[in-house]
């Protein structure tokens, strides 16, 4: 699984981190600037949960 965070769409809701703190790390100001990454297999469900929590739809899950 690949996670793609669109940093330009991120408005700092931090709901990704609220839903999945193990997967989505925030900057000090509360923005997600993780870019593209592959979560560990045990974190895949959490990655999806965090992506689903983003009001900006800034996080895309690519199943591969």
């Amino acid at each position: 699984m690949k996670v793609v965070v669109d940093r330009n769409r991120c408005q700092g809701h931090a709901t990704c981190n609220l839903a999945a703190p193990e997967v989505y790390i925030l900057t000090d100001d509360g923005f997600n600037e993780m870019g593209i990454f592959n979560p560990s297999p045990e974190n895949e469900a959490l990655a999806r949960k965090g992506a689903l929590a983003c009001p900006e739809r800034a996080i895309t899950i690519v199943e591969e």
């Binding site: 408005q11 809701h13 689903l52 929590a53 009001p55 900006e56």
Partner: peptide, 10 residues
């Protein structure tokens, strides 16, 4: 999920 826009969007 509770994906609302109570705090706005954009």
């Amino acid at each position: 999920h509770f994906r609302h826009i109570a705090f706005g969007t954009g």
